[in-house]
Amino acid sequence: MSEDAVDSLFQALYSLTDIREIFRKTSPHHELTEDQKKQMDELIEKVRKNLDEIEGEMLE
C-alpha cells in the first residue's frame, strides 16, 4: 500500500489549491505582494517535494 505517496498526492493538491486561492485574491492582474510571492514560493516548493516523494515511492 502506497500510503505515503497517496498522502503526498493529496498534500500536493491542497498546496495547489492554496495557489489557486492566491490567483483568486489577485485577479485579474495577479500582481503579487511580497508576502504573496513568498507564500507562492513556499507552496510551489511543497508541491515539488510532494511530487518527488511520489516519484521516489512509485517509480524508483
Binding site: 491542497y14 489549491t17 492554496d18 489557486r20
Partner: peptide
C-alpha cells in the same frame, strides 16, 4: 458562495 480554499480541498477529497 465562492468556496474557501478549505472547501475546495474537501471537493478533492
Amino acid at each position: 458562495g465562492r468556496l474557501t480554499p478549505e472547501a475546495m480541498k474537501t471537493m478533492i477529497s
